[in-house]
Design a binder for these strands. Structure first.
Lengths: 140, 140
DNA sequence: TGAAATTGCTTTCCAAGTCAACTACTTTCA
DNA sequence: TGAAAGTAGTTGACTTGGAAAGCAATTTCA
């Protein structure tokens, strides 16, 4: 990167977009091996971590709008990774669960993601990586 | 945000995606008033700042893949914001220029973006905002 | 020189996202 | 109670983005 480069670089929104683009790009290459998108990985992690999640809660945690989540889940269902179940307490709500296959897939994918995380962390002095995450969380 | 929330939050890729989503979302609401997308704003800033840019260089700076840029430019041309010109030195290359309208529009938009930047910066202690940008640039 | 390789940009085709409308269930309150 | 309002999720029409192929200009080098 040249030094004169880019008055835009001082805009937080630009710096964020640039960093996000780069990281998402290289992560997505990794996940392609598993035939999975980043969003699907986030969904699986949320399901694994969580208490019963409704689609709405899941959408928030997985950083997707409800229609986008709906469609992603359609695909994941037909890939056999998750299944839907109508909530008994409120028949409008849907709870989502990982299938056995989904769980296995998630564990495989997780290894790659953590690998990627390590690679990223290496670009920083030891504490900076955590510092960056902490600063980023202030925005969310 | 609840505290137990989200083992995902420790993944840099997730923290980045979350922050980017939030910031892009609120910026995009602002820009909608001008009938413009964030990407178009980036393109306009690059053109304003820069020496003659080819589509390829512009794509890198504006954080778009070449096909996406091509299509965005089509739209911007038909909105009268920019115009294409074949480079004289290499007839494969295209140079892009802001029209008068494009320049005016860019200045209006820029005010809103800088406003948004100020709002974001307020979420941090004084130095942290610059620190965040600096850390982010290490990723790009 | 001129055929082959490379480069710059665009097009095509398909996958994915958005907004707004819709269905179905639940809650409210007159 | 039951009509009106509110909420959860999905669908449909449309827009945008990406990968790969395509076209045209340029460079390479035998």
């Amino acid at each position: 990167m040249s030094t004169e480069l880019n008055l835009l670089g001082n805009h937080l929104s630009y710096a964020l977009a640039a960093a996000h683009r780069r990281v998402a790009q290289s992560l997505s290459v990794r996940l392609k091996k598993h035939g999975i998108q980043i969003e699907a990985w986030r969904v699986m992690e949320c399901l694994d971590a969580g208490t019963r999640l409704s689609m709405g809660e899941l959408a928030k945690q997985a950083l997707l709008n409800p229609p986008a989540l709906s469609k992603l889940v359609d695909r994941m269902v037909s890939d056999g990774l998750v299944h839907r179940q109508i909530s008994t307490s409120d028949q409008r709500q849907i709870n989502l669960f990982l299938t056995k296959l989904g769980q296995r897939r998630m564990l495989q994918v997780r290894r790659d993601v953590e690998d990627e995380d390590r690679v990223l962390a290496e670009q920083f002095d030891t504490k900076d990586s955590a510092r960056l995450i902490q600063l980023l969380s202030q925005l969310s």
